[in-house]
Design a binder for these strands. Structure first.
Length: 150
DNA sequence: GCCAACGTTGGC
DNA sequence: GCCAACGTTGGC
């Protein structure tokens, strides 16, 4: 059982959207490291911190769960879509996604508050210049954050 | 295989 | 809107 933090811009897709839809494909990831996390390491049942980025109040907004193993991201084949990849083929897909399902909303645990806890000094999202949209969360970090969330 | 140029991310 | 940090691309 592993734990993850997954970023989403709430203007694009928020925790409210996830709550309404229940379970969604995490399509559109076009970064190799993030892809590899989904394809090689994510398992059904893994815990997910749902993080709102690029918004007035960035921070953890809810909890989710990995609900499928990774499979080829359909949007890479859609020639008129913004996630199209001309180098990807059905025989040799380049991008993958898992699906995640809604668990619950949480209080907003802001980036500033996360930074204020020495216990979270190693949280990847807080590292300098971090840009990965999917990062692993250590069990200690996960437990500490869940305790903060009550 | 190097590396400059370019595009993107994301907090502020 | 700014800008630092980073990933990707492509010429050589």
């Amino acid at each position: 059982m592993r734990y993850w933090l997954m970023k989403s811009e709430p203007a694009e897709f928020s925790i409210d959207d996830l709550a309404r839809e229940g379970q969604v494909a995490w399509f559109g990831v076009r970064n190799y490291q993030a892809r590899n996390f989904m394809r090689d390491q994510m398992r059904v049942g893994d815990g997910v911190l749902f993080y709102h980025s690029s918004c007035p109040e960035p921070g953890i907004a809810g909890l989710a769960q990995v609900s499928t193993l990774a499979y080829p991201d359909e949007t890479q084949f859609e020639a008129d879509g913004k996630y199209f990849d001309p180098k990807a083929t059905r025989e040799n897909p380049r991008w993958f996604n898992v699906e995640v399902k809604y668990v619950r909303h949480t209080q907003l645990l802001s980036l500033g508050e996360l930074r204020g806890h020495p216990e979270l000094a190693t949280l990847r999202i807080l590292a300098r210049g971090n840009r990965l949209s999917i990062t692993p969360v250590d069990p200690d970090e996960w437990n500490f954050i869940l305790k903060l969330l009550g």
